[in-house]
């Protein structure tokens, strides 16, 4: 093995991959959210469709999409690999009585579970929108853009999807509540002056992003 593969197959190396990809995915969340906020614009989707058309066909975005897929891929793969390794490290004989809840938070211990829920959500989400837009012929709006807005409207009138999306965002919220500041810890970016700020920003980020995303299906279901 070369030093690179050795580095990234070590326990800390794997964690570094998790942290870097995690933070990258956080940046994706911001971009995705900013774009999607146009759903709330009272223009029946004109701006949103234009944005969607841009995202779907701009060559730079399409290139970044590959990076994004790799980011997701590594994050998911390493996450599952770490979970398996860590379970094995514990051994077969567990504690008969274990009060781990007294020394740590539930969500910090449940990153694999929360991540899996988010992954399930993600697959459905891709099927709902990305799949339709990319692989099927979608009707176009007055400006000649693919009418993504109509897809959103249709999906979010379905109570099943609304509930699923809200659950997905709750899982993401808890995933981020631990993951955001945890990534900084893993990268060694701690300092007694700045770490409290990172934690605060992490909490704010998680709550705002997830609340905003969750607001979309709810808004469409009840108000459109």
């Amino acid at each position: 093995m070369s030093w690179i593969t050795k580095t990234f197959s070590s326990s800390i190396g794997r964690k570094i991959i998790m942290a870097v990809t995690g933070l990258f995915l956080c940046s994706f969340l911001v971009v995705h959210l900013v774009g999607n906020l146009q759903l709330f614009k009272a223009d029946n989707g004109v701006a949103f469709n234009a944005y969607s058309e841009f995202m779907g066909h701009n060559p730079l975005i399409r290139t970044l999409e590959i990076v994004l897929v790799l980011g997701f891929g590594f994050h998911i793969y390493e996450g599952l690999a770490l979970a398996a390794k860590n379970r094995a490290a514990r051994g077969n004989q567990g504690y008969v009585v274990d009060h781990i809840e007294q020394n740590s938070s539930w969500h910090s211990r449940s990153m694999a579970l929360l991540g899996s829920i988010v992954l399930f959500f993600l697959i459905v989400h891709l099927y709902n929108f990305f799949g339709s837009l990319r692989f099927t012929d979608v009707p176009r709006d007055a400006n000649g853009n693919e009418d993504a807005y109509a897809l959103v409207l249709a999906a979010f009138k379905n109570p099943f999807y609304v509930v699923l999306y809200v659950i997905g965002q709750v899982a993401l919220l808890y995933h981020l509540l631990h993951g955001f500041s945890s990534a900084f810890q893993t990268l060694g970016l701690t300092h007694r002056k700045y770490t409290p700020a990172i934690k605060f920003i992490g909490y704010g980020f998680s709550i705002i992003v997830c609340a905003a995303f969750a607001a979309m299906p709810i808004y469409f279901f009840f108000f459109k």
Binding site: S10, S11, I12, R14, K15, L82, K85, N86, A88, A89, R90, I100, N103, S104, S105, S108, R109, M111, H178, S182, Q185, T186
Partner: peptide, 22 residues
């Protein structure tokens, strides 16, 4: 030291904080 730690079969840190708490 990290290489030996991995070789011994310890798990990876997920920043849960139980260790420091206990």
């Amino acid at each position: 030291m990290v290489a030996q730690m991995d070789k011994e079969g310890f798990g990876a840190c997920t920043n849960i904080g139980s260790c420091a708490a206990e």
